[in-house]
Each structure stands twice: as structure tokens, then as C-alpha cells.
Write a protein that binds this DNA or RNA. Structure first.
Lengths: 332, 332
DNA sequence: CTGAAAGCGCTTACAG
DNA sequence: CTGAAAGCGCTTACAG
């Protein structure tokens, strides 16, 4: 049973294909009576436009890519950052009736494949989040005239609009709270230093500490739980008397928490812990994790909103910064 | 800068469009020298085929849908089942150079929209997982001639091929182990009874218990952590002396674990717990969770493999059942 | 407000 | 082995 075409709808309604096309695309210049007749024919036949044929002439595909330059095992792990971003993006795209194309690019090969795909104009616009280093991709695509928007400030001199979360202030709030509650040896487990979230949260830690007379004690992880545990053990070795740690992600904080307890430290009595993210897990650690909440789903939504505006030819802000918020639970 | 077309490649290589098309599609009937010349022209121009134009004539899109009839907040939550399936499916599709279209259909409206989308032949085949009740969707699509494959045995009389995990035996193994280690009052927290995974795991529990002289003690959750905690409290009220519980998902088991501890029960001394899934979290609960491992990513991969065969016109098995495995950790 | 016609960029019998 | 030509199903100036 082949699907009905515009042609068949036109015949049934007794009009031309052009008129059916106008009705389908909500053109205002169609007489009401004809519009009704065409609508009925569409319903009776169960007509749905062929997207390929439409794309061929409009040069648009009505689909947008979300590129995550990470390995699939990372994106589809228990790190709640990725599903949060995906969810926010797909919410906005759905309600604009646009298709989301998710591209996970762990290797250089897949990275290249995605660039070719985008350049081939299979998509109307591109969102890139979780970038590492000074990724040339956003700049390359933007220069070819493809609407591009980044999740997180791009490193390097790329000038592409972005939606960011206030990482620096998040770090500052966490450290300030630790200082105010009398902690004196405040360490940090930073995120990867090739990612802006890793860099900026460490900056916030450093800036806030600089105002006090405390020295900084730093270890670096890669946002995974295991790396948090490893870093925590290292910090305890570096300074067995530390009494607080600001951890740049909740998953790393979970690892750190377990490393602390394995080392016989009581939390929060001996050591206070503050994470970053406020994923669901934070409410279920033992004790529940104090953390800096960032609006992950909200960032995804805002990214999609801005990109849709950009693709529609509207002027948008160079950057949107979403606020972070300190959430106090049981580890401080 | 408009993208180059077949026409331009043909001109540059001094051949017809048909010949370029043959080279692009690896037709064997092209002279080697011409093939080389065309390849060079393609490289020089950076030619990439226009997928819309190609689809229009081939009537294929080279993309496949994965339909998850769940709300987005469920799919993109910390339930590791969904990312696992997505990851497996996208691995196989990627390596076959097919595009994955992810469709999350929480509401009836989105469910209908997806049906229309599929019927409009925007995709070459459909995968459906996490079905509730006797969903008519697989049958409807299959009857229209669209290749369909289900993740999990479809309920009702739908006859569509599926890839399933051995839920019944998983439940049996868990209960058998509890019996063998001397537990006498073995309860279960079942999954939702409109889903085959919920039904079959409960069946396994019942079947294994039937062989003993123990009676069954049942509560039902919906696979979320909170529902596990609620069900556990209810079970403790029903039978304060229970000494073991088989929980139909790890996330529910996590909730149950916390409810048990909040009620002053020691695990595993007072009460043994076995979950189902073996998600990453299982290694990080306190104590680490004994569980029935199901190959989630493997199920996704197998689903995609079977669907690709089906879409290629090959004959495939009515069903593939993947084995489950008992993993003993600290809660038994 | 409506229709005839051109054209989007490909693939694929059909000849040769 | 290669090319001329038809056609996939739409949209959109252009006339009227």
C-alpha cells in the first residue's frame, strides 16, 4: 500500500497540487471553502507530506543536531549531565516540531564524519556541548554559514554564541560557605582542565580562597566517580588534616565520599564535602550531598531556544549565563 | 557557498551524472580509470550526496527509529536501562552507517504523532522497547509493511519478532539462592504489572517459591527508586519478620535498601536483598548490591542487528532470548 | 485566489 | 561499460 501523494489529494479535492501545497503549509491565500475541501481529502486519504521531497526544494530539513564530543560509554553512563541536556534540548525542539539528531563523537573519525554530515546540510543547525580544549568544530561550521550554538563557553578564540552556567560563582559560593562554617583546610577536586566547567569551577575556588588566608589544595579528576575516589585518596595523602573539600561534580563527590569513609573520616564531622550539579543521586548518598545546583535541563532548553532563533535569522545575545545555587544537605 | 552537486562532479570529471552516481554507490560496472577520475573530482569539490534527493528516488531514508513509550523525564532519569538500550542500538546502527532517530512518547498525542511519522515512511524500520500493556503500535506498523522489532516480548496477541532477556529464570535464580542460603521468609518487590519485565520476574519468583514450602509476600513498584522504598515499608508492615527480598530492579532495590536501614534492619544480617539489572550503582550501594545481571547494552545491540536483517529482507527468528546471571555482592 | 510549469538533486531502467 | 532521459514528490515564482 503506497502512501498517498499531493497529486492524489489534489485530484480528490478537485484542485491543483499548488493549492494543496498551500493548504498543507498554511498559506493565508486560500479560500476558506477550498481549504475545507482539501483538508477533508487529506484526512480521507491519510496524507502525510514526503519530507525528502520537501527538503529537496526548500533546502531545509527541519532537523537540528546535538553534538556531544564524548564516547558513547560516557554519554550513556550514569553521569546525569548528558541525559539532562538531551532532555532539555529535545523538549524545546519537540514543541517547535523539529527533529533532534543526536551525534555522539568519541573518536576523531566520528568527529570528522559529523563535520561532513553538517556541511552536507543535512541539518538546519547545530548545538555542541561538553567540548574539550579549543575544538575547531563550532568555528568551522559557523564559517560555512551553519547556525551554531555552544553549551558552555568555547575555549580558544572561537566566536560562537553560547549558553553557560555560572561556574565561577558556583565555586565561590561553595568555598565561601565552607569558610563561613569554620573550615580551615579546604581542598578541591577539580574537573578536567581541558573543559571550561573544570577550569571555571577551579577558578571560583581559587578566587574565593584568595580573599582568605587559606592555601589551596588541589587534585584533578575527569568527572567520573572513580576519578573522584582516586583524587580524594591523593588529597588525604597530601594533607591528612584537611577538613573540607569542594568537588567539581556530584559523581566525583560520591567517589570522594566513599574514599573518605574508607579512610575512616566522618562526614561532615571530620571533613565537609560540597559537590556540583545536584543530580538525583545527591539526595541519596550517605549522608545526603550538599552541592551547587546547576540548571542542566534548563541549559539544554535555553540552548535549543537560542539556536532556533539564530536559525530563524533573529539576532541573539553572544552569551546567556544561567545562575547556580548552593544547596545545603548533610555533608556540610 | 552552495554545496556541489552530482552535476558539477560529472562536469569536472568529464563524465555523465549516471556514472558519478555509480561511483558514489559502488556499482561494480565502472571502468577503473573512470572511477579514479571521478573519485578525484569528488575529493576536490568536497562533494557529499544530498540525502533528500536520494531518498526521494530510492524511497529509503537509511534511518531507523527507536521508540520508547515513556515520558522524557523517565527516559532521561537516572534509570540506567534506557541509556543502555540506546547505546547498544546506536552502536550497531552506527557501524551499519544508519541514522538513529530517537522517539520518546510519553503521551497519547506523541504516540500518535510517532505512528504517523513511521507510516509516512520517514524511516526504514522501527524498534520499540519498554512497552506497556498490549500496545497496538507494533502490530499496526508491521501490518503496514514496516519492519518492526520489539525489545521485550509484546503482550497481547501481537506477532512481531522480539529480543528478550530471560526474566523468569533471573527471578528463579535469585529466589533459589535466597532459599539455599537459608532464608525462610522471602518477599518480592515486583515491577509494574503492565510490563513484561515486571510480570515475568514475578513469575520467576512465584515458580521457584512454589517448589519450596514458603509462601509468597508481594508488593508492586514501578521501577523507580521511590516506589521501591514505599513497597519495602509496606512489606515490613505486612510481615515484620521477613528475612529476604527479591527486587525487580536495582533502582527499586536501592530505595528498598534505604527503607530497610531506616527501619533499623541490618543488611544482609537481618534481611538479604537481591536486585535486578546490575547497573553501575549496584557496586556503590552500602553494602554493594547482589543482583541479577541482564545484558542491557547487549539487548540493544541484538535488537538493532535483528531489525537490520529484517529490513534487508532476510528471515529472522521470532524471538531471541538473552541469558541473565546472578551476581553475588554484599547484600546476601 | 488559483493553476501550469519549472526545478530541487538524485537513481535507474533502457539503449547502445 | 557509459549516457540520455524519465521520474521520485514536493514548492514557488509567474501569470492570470
Amino acid at each position: 500500500m503506497p502512501r498517498p501523494t499531493l497529486e492524489q489529494v489534489a485530484q480528490r479535492a478537485g484542485v491543483s497540487r499548488a493549492t494543496v501545497s498551500r493548504v498543507v503549509n498554511d498559506s493565508p491565500t486560500v479560500a476558506e471553502s477550498i481549504r475545507t475541501a482539501v483538508r477533508r481529502a487529506i484526512d480521507e486519504l491519510g496524507y502525510v507530506p514526503n519530507q525528502a521531497a520537501r527538503s529537496l526544494v526548500t533546502q531545509r530539513t527541519d532537523s537540528y543536531a546535538l553534538i556531544l564530543p564524548e564516547s558513547p560509554s560516557r554519554v550513556f553512563s550514569d553521569d546525569q549531565f548528558f541525559p539532562g541536556i538531551i532532555r532539555g534540548v529535545s523538549q524545546e525542539l519537540d514543541s517547535a516540531d523539529k527533529q533532534l539528531v543526536l551525534m555522539v563523537a568519541g573518536s576523531q573519525a566520528s568527529h570528522d564524519r559529523i563535520e561532513r554530515y553538517a556541511l552536507a546540510r543535512h541539518i538546519d543547525g547545530v548545538l555542541i556541548a561538553s567540548m574539550h580544549g579549543a575544538d575547531p568544530l563550532p568555528g568551522t561550521l559557523a564559517r560555512m554559514g551553519i547556525p551554531v550554538l555552544c553549551g558552555g563557553r568555547p575555549l580558544g578564540q572561537t566566536r560562537v554564541p553560547y549558553v553557560e552556567v555560572d561556574n565561577v560563582n558556583g565555586g565561590r559560593m561553595a568555598v565561601r560557605h565552607l569558610l563561613e562554617t569554620g573550615r580551615t583546610r579546604i581542598a578541591t577536586i577539580a574537573g578536567p582542565q581541558d573543559m571550561v566547567a573544570g577550569i571555571d569551577r577551579l577558578t571560583g575556588y581559587r578566587e574565593e580562597l584568595r580573599g582568605s588566608d587559606r592555601r589551596s589544595i588541589v587534585a584533578v579528576g575527569d568527572f567520573t566517580r572513580d576519578s573522584g575516589a582516586v583524587a580524594m585518596r591523593q588529597l588525604l595523602e597530601d594533607d591528612p588534616d584537611l577538613d573540607a573539600v569542594f568537588v567539581a561534580s556530584d559523581l566525583m563527590a560520591h567517589g570522594a565520599l566513599q574514599a573518605l569513609q574508607a579512610a575512616g573520616r566522618r562526614v561532615p564531622d571530620d571533613v565537609a564535602v560540597i559537590g556540583f550539579d545536584d543530580i538525583a543521586l545527591a539526595r541519596y548518598t550517605e549522608p545526603p550531598l550538599s552541592t551547587v545546583r546547576q540548571p542542566i535541563v534548563g541549559q539544554g532548553r535555553e540552548m535549543a531556544r537560542q539556536l532556533l532563533r539564530l536559525a530563524a535569522g533573529e539576532a541573539i545575545a553572544d552569551s546567556v549565563i544561567l545562575p547556580t545555587e548552593l544547596v545545603i544537605r548533610g555533608t556540610t
